[in-house]
Design a protein around this nucleic acid. Structure first.
Length: 511
RNA sequence: GAGCCGGUAGCUCAGCUGGUAGAGCAACGGACUUUUAAUCCGUAGGUCCUGGGUUCGAGCCCCAGCCGGCUCACCA
């Protein structure tokens, strides 16, 4: 890749610098300070067509409008020229006619390039070829583009209305490293992130409307916890102490419930020092919410409503197509007990099987790295292999073995289980929730069990957080809590196969 | 971490059994006052990822490395 320098192997960048100087020589400032905008590409065309259909259109009348956007295509015809201008709503064609804009301005068109930002003043009309177009009265350069964007050519198939892109910017690495160029050139990528924003804001609205308070808890923590994962470790110079980047919000949010904030939520970046693949990015977005006086049954209700709301916010209807499969977010979602589902797959009661046999079964499925794994981890692994991939439609899996869930209350009728559920969609975990363990003595015992697993070699096992135990000792009311992996949800709702396609700047290796 | 595939012009890619590097689009010059992948004529553009090696000769073969994609393993 050529990259730097004022030249560029093909001289494209040098040519653009020369044009920049030529513009300045003609008294044109190539980097404007502001510009009037009164119209957007797609809505203005739609309004024009409506007026036309209603017969209320008098061509050439009405006041001129101002559009602003990026020049994405240019077709010169001697004394006239056509350009495509793209703004955040879409594209509109611009028609420049020499004897309308004037000789001097028309000559400036030679100094424009694809990728330049321009402002155009004019009126809409319909061309002989039938396209609604802005007839430019005047135009202004807003910002010169000195580096060529990898703009492909786009043809809209007249029959199907589907866009075909020629050439274009397809290289995944380049797209992730230079997301600005990816966004500039691939409008579908912008749409994915608009959808993501709708999903996140719908989640906030949903919780706000139920009286949840949005809060912010520390990213830099003296003691990480709330999930099973390895942390990032960092150091604060002035305090000369080690700090961890949070792996979950859970323990802090429950401290707030102790403090009497009885419905809280947080949308946060969490950090886990684990591998990277199409389902995992080291920093990812988590939504967690906690409600006092509720148990996991109540939270299941809430999660069901939440996911219907999110699907509607994303796609206008409670469903989506994920990688060719129709997903239907119709309530009620299916419910499966963890032990029943795994028991059926194993042909035996998972709670009755000895640890050695569980390990053998897991090994037979091709899992390795099982040495430090206790019962819980083995059951989890077996479930992940045997049951999870089949959970395509929204499905709650509930009542996990207790050793899998050190922060959850024991199932009231079956103490070997936990009051916990996970929501699976498209074979992926979307949410995880429990009736929160609020007995400080039991909680200490459970965390100490984890510490033992840790000592036995499980690096992801949790650690005892004394301050959290102290908070519980003051009294945590019965509480239901939920964590939602926002990136995963967006992947499903936006039909994206890789988490990197729903994160604007995914973590990459050193360039 | 392992396996497979890949890195050639600004972009998308071709390049045979080893013989001095190609196309389309983009760019540049010219013609064209309703085009739309505009068209037509012409021009320029390359550390073939990096470093070694084999060879008279390497984009191509060998070795090492870097980067990426996919799959698997761990994790959400």
């Amino acid at each position: 890749m050529s990259g730097g320098g004022s030249g560029g192997p093909s001289g494209v960048m040098r040519t653009r610098r020369e044009k920049l100087e030529a513009l300045r020589a003609r008294g044109v400032e190539p980097f404007a300070y502001s510009c009037e905008v009164t119209a957007r590409a797609a809505p203005s065309v739609a309004m024009f067509e409506e007026a036309e259909a209603a017969g209320s259109l008098v061509e050439g009348r009405g006041s001129a409008e101002h559009w602003a956007g990026r020049l994405v295509a240019f077709r010169s015809h001697g004394r006239s020229a056509f350009a495509d201008l793209e703004d955040h709503t879409g594209r509109v064609q611009i028609y420049f006619k020499r004897n309308v804009v004037g000789d001097e301005a028309f000559g400036l068109l030679d100094l424009l390039d694809r990728g330049d930002w321009i402002g155009v003043e004019g009126r809409l009309f319909r061309t002989r070829a039938g396209q609604v177009t802005v007839r430019a009265d005047s135009f202004r350069l807003l910002a010169k583009s000195l580096r060529p964007l990898p703009l492909g050519k786009v043809e809209i198939d007249a029959g199907t209305g589907k866009a075909r892109t020629y050439s274009g910017f397809a290289d995944r690495e380049g797209r992730y490293r230079q997301r600005y160029a990816d966004l500039a050139v691939n409008s579908g990528v912008r749409e994915v992130f608009r959808l993501r924003a709708r999903v996140v804001s719908a989640a906030r609205r949903f919780l706000d409307d139920l009286g949840f308070l949005e809060v912010e808890t520390p990213v830099l923590q003296p003691q990480y916890g709330g999930a099973s994962a390895r942390p990032f470790v960092t150091h604060h110079n002035a305090l000369d102490r080690q700090l961890y980047l949070r792996i979950a919000d859970e323990l802090y949010l429950k401290r707030l419930i102790v403090g009497g904030m009885d419905r809280v939520y947080e949308v946060s970046k969490d950090f886990r020092n684990e591998g990277i693949d199409r389902f995992h990015n080291p920093e990812f977005t988590m939504l967690e919410f906690y409600q006092a006086f509720a148990d996991y049954e109540d939270m299941m209700e809430l999660v069901e409503q939440l996911f219907v709301t999110l699907a509607e916010a994303a796609n206008g209807a409670p469903g989506c197509d994920y990688q060719g499969t129709r997903i239907d977010f119709a309530r009620p979602f299916a419910r499966l007990r963890f032990v029943d589902a795994l028991g059926e797959a194993l042909g035996a009661d998972p709670l009755a099987l000895p640890v050695d046999e569980l390990r053998e079964r897991a090994r037979a499925l091709g899992a390795d790295d099982l040495e430090g794994a206790g019962r819980g981890k083995l059951l989890d692994k077996l479930f992940g292999e045997l049951v999870q991939p089949d959970l395509v439609q929204p499905t709650f899996v509930l009542d996990h073995p207790r050793e899998l869930s050190p922060l959850a209350k024991a199932r009231r009728s079956a103490p070997e289980l936990a009051e916990r559920f996970e929501l699976f969609v498209a074979g992926q975990e979307m949410a995880n929730a429990f009736s929160e363990l609020n007995d400080p003595i039991a909680q200490r015992a459970r965390l100490e069990d984890q510490a033992e697993l840790r000592a036995a070699g499980d690096e992801e096992a949790q650690v005892v957080d004394e301050d959290y135990i102290r908070a519980l000792e003051y009294g945590l009311p019965p509480t239901g809590g939920v964590g939602v992996g926002i990136d995963r949800v967006v992947m499903v709702l936006a039909d994206q196969a890789s988490i990197r396609d729903v994160i604007l700047f995914p973590t990459l290796r050193e360039a």
